Computed example of a mutant assay.
Amino acid sequence: MPDDQDWSKPAALAIPKGGYFELERGRFGPIFPRTPACYGFSIIAKVKPGREDAIREHGKVLEQAVAADPTVLAVLKLHYLRWQVFPIGDDLYFQYQGIFDTDFDKYTEDAVALFSATGIDTVFTNLEGFPADWKENPAAFVEFVREHHVPSFLEYGEYPYVSADEIKKALRLKAAFSDMLDQMQ
């Protein structure tokens, strides 16, 4: 990984096939590197038969939770989430892509705690092989994610290595300057 983490210069990072440069172990297995896009993971898993509508409904549940409390997912330090449902042959698959500011272990622990505290289940409950005891057994949650994780081989950041909090701070500063300039006219 390059030492130069200058946010003002776009950066790309080619990632080795295994998903990391040097094997460093965390609480739940290998630690994937911070890239110009920060941290993240992608999974592709088979949808349980008849659960597509439940997955799509879960998207609405999260939309409503965020509308009711815009900070409900704040602990996860997310930049973006992307969910997709698509067919492969006669089967339906779900793809999860998440980009966030913490390492994978912390994200997983925070996600399990968040879902347990809010009563919102993870969408992963609709996927084949997802452990029923995931709330009490974060290690089983992690094992499922790691088994279905598809590492990136390239990540790019237009403003690399910048946290979501830094972006929000910069936008608040921009709004304050804009307001100040408006007051001067």
Rank of each mutant, 00 (worst) to 15 (best):
G29K: 10
Q95V: 09
M180P: 00
F100N: 02
I43Y: 03
A111K: 01
W7Q: 04
D179S: 14
A176F: 11
K77H: 15
F86G: 06
S163E: 14
H58K: 11
S8F: 08
G59Y: 04
F41P: 00
Q185A: 12
F100D: 03
Q97W: 09
D53G: 08
E128W: 00
A37M: 13
K106E: 14
L62W: 11
V75D: 08
D69S: 11
F32Q: 04
K60S: 13
A74W: 00
D3Y: 08
R82T: 12
D121G: 14
G18E: 15
V72K: 03
N126A: 13
T71H: 12
D182L: 08
I31F: 05
F144E: 04
E158R: 08
F100A: 05
I44A: 11
N137T: 06
G129P: 07
F28W: 05
I88K: 06
G19K: 05
A54P: 03
A67M: 12
F104V: 02
D105M: 09
A45I: 02
P30Q: 13
G50S: 11
G119M: 07
Q64P: 01
C38P: 00
Y39F: 13
A45V: 05
K9Y: 09
I167L: 12
V61M: 08
F130V: 10
V123E: 04
L114Q: 03
A74E: 14
F86A: 06
V85S: 07
Y159C: 14
H148P: 07
G119P: 04
D91L: 09
I120F: 04
D103K: 09
V75G: 08
L62N: 10
H79M: 03
D121C: 07
G50F: 12
V47S: 03
I31D: 07
P151M: 03
K135G: 00
W7G: 05
P138Y: 02
D110Y: 08
K168I: 05
F21E: 01
D101H: 02
P36I: 01
D165E: 15
D110Q: 11
P33W: 06
A170P: 01
G98D: 00
G29R: 09
K135H: 08
I43P: 00
D101W: 04
P30H: 09
